[in-house]
Write a protein that binds this DNA or RNA. Structure first.
Lengths: 333, 333
DNA sequence: AGAGCGTCTGGGAGCGTTCACAGACTGAAG
DNA sequence: CTTCAGTCTGTGAACGCTCCCAGACGCTCT
């Protein structure tokens, strides 16, 4: 197998100079139709593919962005939301011929590696997923001045890092209202971690509706994992055995809560109504299927990518995007 | 913010030449301890980070591999197995400071993009996931001569593309034997797609044990998706209402089968025993929890990565790896 | 003392692009 | 006919590395 053709070979085959080939490649102005055609033909003839390294070396652009997953290793990808996010991001980026590098940021070694990667100029942008408040990596990343966006606000850095997210607070209100309307009187909630926007705002929305009824003893915290949903539900049940509804801030945790309720002999929704959040793929497959709040996660991912690409293209600032949620009624409430 | 330091700056700071810095960077022989120390110090002082593009340009190595997911877009990541695979691969590769680019190969445009990417020399290796028999992309990839491995054999290309996989056939036998031992008499099976090793070999293992009892009317095919598990189970039930067990070739499909059985009023395991395969995260959270075959997927991913790295490092061939499975008994059978 | 060998260092060349600049050509305006 | 603006093209100079070669240096052995 011979060497791969370079821009030189194409130029020779087309009977023009490197410069002209380069202009065609980057569709610059000022290329005659004839030259353009000749180059295009030469490219397919020779099977030429540009060498991104050589290009990057001079343009300082890599044609790739990095997605950083800030979760402990065993938890990352536990929630099906990750799959939606990554799949959607890849597709959207591919349309622009940008490739996606995925990195984990679960421990210090990871974080250092990510930072080195970004500082080294190996990515045109950073797509932060599930960064928590006070995340040192997020700060360091901002300092590198490499364009960065987040899926869901980074608590405390809302202005430094643009983001797209669902309207968590209003979504939680929708569910709380629904539970109240259905005549539930003692409504508890299992929140996400209180250093994430989903944790904070879904609790706020819940409190908006329940008001004084949202007492401390009806609130428990999880960490988005299924297991944490199980144990939070157990604590709730022990403390307030007569609760008749629970709003769980994610479907995955809700699946855990369901298991605990079943083990405790509570019927859902007869004894206890359960409301989830996400409308992820698990929602429809629990028993009973979850009544939940649908957040348009694919769309969130698309918008996040759009923001990132705008920044990469030179926008000096972009506005956050908040997308509406909808109530999806199934059998659990 | 000034320019990023280059190898020149480090050389100047250390009072040596570029050549010596380069030697330290690539830990070549023949660098005096004094020079080595000076360079190391200069590197941290200046905050130098090598420019991979410049390096790649001359070495023809990129320091990254690409994971190619050959599934239709809506199905990719539906199964939690994907998460395990990708998470494990990223971690293992990170140890060697290799980054992972993830690409989808769900339609022709995707496949062409992948090919262009690999042909362009943008990855040192390819990690194929869920490639089906007759996959044109796999063939084209092999022709590029870029090192490639697969998670699970690529049917028809077992010799061209090294792989790591679980012992699908023996795993299926374990489950079939278990169901027989438990006194089940009319045992059906829902297979995976018959152009994947998991589809083929898990059916073979099933047939190994059931022998003549594995009649056509007790076999249905799914496509690994939950939904396909639901419908396959429905077809089975219609055709053979008196079946008393079913071996489903993946937990995700088994979850679907469980839903169909419940809807049909069959009790699990009393009326119908259900056996899954994978022991993925869903297995423990279905109702009832699935008795299944555990395949060490993280280990499979690790081995696949190991094979790939060996090829990248110049090995001219590596042997496939087959890992043992174990029966995990829960409540569904 | 000289030869020979292993160790260490510096610097030129080259990897495949893009970019900036200079110059050629065209047609319209003066 | 000259001037000028607009269009188009070719070429040298980077970009930041690694590779290779030539040569310096210090030993040991004859």
């Amino acid at each position: 197998m011979g060497k791969r053709p370079t821009i030189h070979d194409v130029a020779a085959a087309a009977g023009v100079s490197r410069g002209t080939v380069s202009r065609v490649l980057n569709d610059d102005r000022y290329v005659s139709p004839a030259a353009h055609a000749a180059v295009r033909r030469a490219i397919t003839e020779t099977g030429y593919i540009v060498n991104r390294n050589a290009r990057s070396l001079v343009t300082r652009r890599t044609g790739s962005v990095v997605m950083v997953l800030s979760e402990p290793h065993e938890k990352v990808f536990e929630d099906p939301n990750y799959g939606v996010l990554i799949r959607t991001a890849i597709r959207r980026l591919a349309e622009r011929d940008v490739s996606l590098v995925v990195m984990l940021a679960g421990d210090d070694g990871d974080r250092e590696r990510v930072l080195r990667y970004v500082r080294g100029g190996h990515a045109d942008g950073v797509f932060l997923v599930s960064a928590h408040a006070g995340d040192a990596l997020a700060d360091a990343l901002v300092k590198t001045r490499v364009p960065a966006v987040a899926q869901g606000a980074v608590v405390g850095r809302e202005n430094a890092i643009p983001y797209a997210a669902a309207d968590d607070r209003e979504g939680a209100r929708q569910m709380a209202r629904y539970l109240v309307e259905r005549g539930r009187r003692k409504i508890a909630t299992i929140t996400g971690p209180m250093d994430t926007p989903g944790g904070i705002q879904r609790l706020e929305g819940f409190a908006d509706v329940l008001g004084r009824k949202a007492s401390r003893r009806l609130i428990e915290h999880g960490d988005w994992s299924r297991l944490s949903g199980e144990s939070a539900m157990a604590r709730l049940l022990e403390r307030t055995p007569d609760l008749d509804a629970v709003f769980v801030a994610s479907d995955l945790m809700a699946a855990g809560a369901l298991a605990t309720l079943r083990a405790a002999g509570r019927r859902v929704p007869d004894d206890v109504a359960v409301g989830g959040f996400d409308d992820s793929s698990i929602a429809a497959s629990t028993h009973p299927p979850l009544t939940t709040i649908r957040q348009p996660l694919a769309q969130v991912a698309e918008e996040t990518v759009r923001l990132l690409l705008e920044l990469v293209d030179g926008a000096d600032r972009v506005d956050p995007v908040i997308l509406p949620t909808t109530l999806v009624v199934r059998d659990s409430a």
